[in-house]
Amino acid sequence: MGYQVNGTTVAADEEGYITDISQWSRELAAEIAKEEKIEMSDDHWEVVNFLRDYYEEYQIAPAIRVLTKAVKNSMGPEKGNSQYLYELFPYGPAKQACKIAGLPKPTGCI
């Protein structure tokens, strides 16, 4: 499968994770979010951008527990908790937000 962005197709695996992270763009992220039935707000973008920075630094997509803790350290406890993150990404913050951020599926998710 893939996503159509600006007339080009970006390849993705059967679960919808794009296969080449360098092809990511904000337009693509919006397209993936639409597939995930998520209306992107500033709060959503904040988490997506955070994940992209995390990947840039560590070269992995974090597991949910690690993401929650890292968000807490960076943005404070009112955002660094699973309730807040699940409200933004109801089908799993790690999985959905990583997908929108163009990252691979988090390690530790089977």
Binding site: E57, Y58, Q59, P62, A63, V66
Partner: peptide
């Protein structure tokens, strides 16, 4: 190839 040495620095967070 992917340089995975930065990932060792993520272990602390795990």
């Amino acid at each position: 190839m992917k340089n995975f040495s930065p990932t060792f620095r993520a272990l602390d967070g795990y």
